[in-house]
């Protein structure tokens, strides 16, 4: 069911809140479960957790139709789940099992679900941006008013392919939404040590691409901005750009925090933790509704872990499968 910008702009309904909360809670809990399992060494994969950043993926996907296309990065769990990716296949992928979304060959950094149009994630920063533009060309030609979205970090905007794609997408009026998840850090380095000018929206505008910045992490604002942009893009308005401030609570890769490492302060994080969208929406729901959602999600997660645990590893015959297409 297509959601219009008008609906998104209205004050959120109870259903909206419940739906968004389910999305947020699923991602938060799934990643907490990954953290929980991690010390057992069953997940032999670098995991880049999005805990704290869930609202971006959930809000963006809420503004999309199921037949829209989403590309993301190696920090892919949130985007994958928000787009409807299969939880069991995600867990199995991290366990390296044959039932994983990439048959155990990709791991956490390369989640993919083409059935739900979640493009395979790449661990080479920035590479996904032009790939999404390529999809956008195909979507434009198809004339079904579908939209492609590319999610990427602040670091990715330093790569040449970001600018090259902005230029190309603007030139061809591609149905492409650029979403920069600005969590201020590339690994341990703050944007102030990497950017000569912090106005990344201005960089997009220089290519004639309309840009909007959302700085407080408010899921409803993100959703409204995304819905409005997607609506214009659908109607042939060409690419748009959203810069969404957010915050990574955990270390760059692996479970747990790293506030003792010295490159950022817990104080900086606390501001974001206070405006945690998971807690915020939980408090907006009637407790019976909240508990029902949480129970359902928790059951789904247990099921997914059991599925991952009990699935077989790929066999030797799989090593050389899919090097080439048939």
């Amino acid at each position: 069911m297509p959601r219009t910008s008008r609906r998104a702009a209205k004050t959120p309904s109870k259903d909206d809140i419940a739906r968004l909360y389910r999305g947020l809670f699923l991602i938060r809990r799934a990643e907490e479960e990954v953290e929980h399992v991690y010390p057992s060494d069953k997940i032999k994969s670098p995991v880049h957790l999005a805990i704290g950043q869930e609202a971006v993926s959930v809000a963006i996907c809420d503004a999309l139709r199921p037949d829209d296309v989403l590309g993301c990065t190696y920090r892919s769990h949130a985007a994958y789940l928000a787009k409807g990716g299969d939880l069991g296949a995600m867990m199995a992928e991290m366990y390296g099992k044959a039932t994983g979304c990439a048959r155990g060959k990709g791991g956490s950094m390369h989640l993919v679900d083409m059935q739900h149009l979640l493009l395979g994630a790449s661990a080479v920063v920035g590479t996904g941006i032009p790939i999404a533009a390529g999809y956008a060309i195909a979507l434009k030609r198809e004339k079904k008013r579908r939209v492609a979205v590319t999610l990427f970090g602040d670091g990715a905007t330093e790569e040449g392919c970001f600018y090259e794609t902005l230029n190309f997408a603007g030139l061809h009026k591609l149905p492409l939404l650029f979403v920069c998840e600005n969590n201020f850090y590339s690994i341990h380095t703050h944007i102030s040590k990497r950017w000569s000018n912090l106005d990344v929206c201005g960089r997009a505008r220089a290519f004639g691409v309309p840009a909007k910045q959302i700085v407080d992490g408010d899921i409803f604002k993100i959703r409204a901005a995304a819905a409005a942009a997607v609506d214009r893009i659908r109607r042939g308005g060409g690419p748009e750009f959203l810069e969404i401030h957010t915050y990574r609570w955990r270390q760059h890769v692996g479970p747990g925090g790293d506030y003792d490492a010295g490159y950022r302060s817990e104080r900086e994080a606390r501001k974001w933790m206070k405006s945690d969208q998971v807690a915020r929406l939980a408090a907006m729901l009637a407790s019976a509704t909240r508990v029902r959602i949480e129970d359902e999600v928790n059951a789904k997660i247990s099921e997914a872990i059991a599925f991952a645990e009990s699935s077989p590893f790929p066999g030797p015959e799989d090593l050389l499968a899919d090097v080439f297409a048939d």
């Binding site: 032999k44 994969s45 390296g96 099992k97 994983g100 155990g104 060959k105 990709g106 791991g107 390369h110 590893f313 790929p314 066999g315 030797p316 799989d318 090593l319 050389l320 090097v323």
Partner: peptide, 16 residues
Amino acid sequence: FAPSTCPTTPSLERLF
């Protein structure tokens, strides 16, 4: 290396 992309799962990486 085996003539494939490097797989992440230990069961195949071992063979790679």
